[in-house]
């Protein structure tokens, strides 16, 4: 079974994946384009998502080795994004973090990730919009009646497309804020 889905929030993605696994599936592949492949199984599996910045080949070997010793199976994800997908059979040791410090560090890595991508998209949006308004048709705003509406409605889908980077800034901004809230909650208590 293949499912297509796009997430901007790693915790929502984790939750959705576990809902699929509870229906008796096991994840076998995740492609960077948002295609998740599942397979029917009699066993119960759980999935946990970790975020790690770029890991050198040697570091990745250590990282993977330790998780595998604990029974976690690595699911290939996109190499571009730093999300690491871990799956294992459901038992009494289903977490990848066992203390506040490491859970807090996880949220800190997520904050770095969302703010980095968010700022990149923000500067891209600025370059995209700084010299022109959103609508590019010349003289659009001085057109009258039906002609104006036709031109306006024709261009609107393209405008929405041009707005995409700005929209993604909002998405990454909100996931930064969520990670920040959880991080500071862990620090306080």
């Amino acid at each position: 079974m293949k499912k297509f889905k796009i997430f901007f929030d790693i915790e929502k993605e984790e939750q959705w994946l576990n809902e699929q696994l509870q229906k008796g599936y096991r994840c076998t592949n995740i492609s960077g384009l948002g295609i998740y492949t599942f397979e029917k199984t009699d066993k119960r599996y759980v999935m946990r998502l970790d975020y790690q910045d770029y890991l050198s080949k040697k570091k990745f070997k250590d990282y993977k080795g330790i998780y595998e010793d604990f029974g976690w199976i690595y699911i290939n994800g996109s190499w571009l994004v730093g999300i690491r997908y871990w799956q294992k059979e459901d038992d009494d040791q289903n977490e990848i973090f066992s203390d506040r410090q490491s859970k807090g560090n996880y949220y800190k890595r997520l904050m770095g990730y969302s703010s980095g991508l968010g700022l990149l998209l923000l500067s891209f949006s600025y370059m995209l919009y700084k010299d022109s308004g959103l609508y590019l048709t010349e003289g659009l705003w001085s057109m009258k009646g039906a002609l104006f509406w036709k031109a306006f409605l024709f261009e609107t889908p393209f405008v929405l497309l041009r707005l995409l980077p700005a929209l993604m800034v909002v998405f990454f901004g909100s996931s930064f804020y969520k990670a920040y809230r959880k991080y500071s909650m862990l620090k306080e208590e």
């Binding site: 946990r48 970790d50 250590d62 990282y63 330790i66 998780y67 010793d69 604990f70 976690w72 871990w86 040791q93 977490e95 990848i96 973090f97 066992s98 203390d99 410090q101 490491s102 560090n105 996880y106």
Partner: peptide, 23 residues
């Protein structure tokens, strides 16, 4: 992880990500 589980009388059981990060 196994040794810590033993010497802490089973009260501290490290998870994979925590152990990796700490190391």
């Amino acid at each position: 992880m196994q040794k810590i589980e033993k010497i802490s009388n089973g009260t501290v059981i490290l998870a994979a990500g925590t152990l990796y990060g700490a190391i």
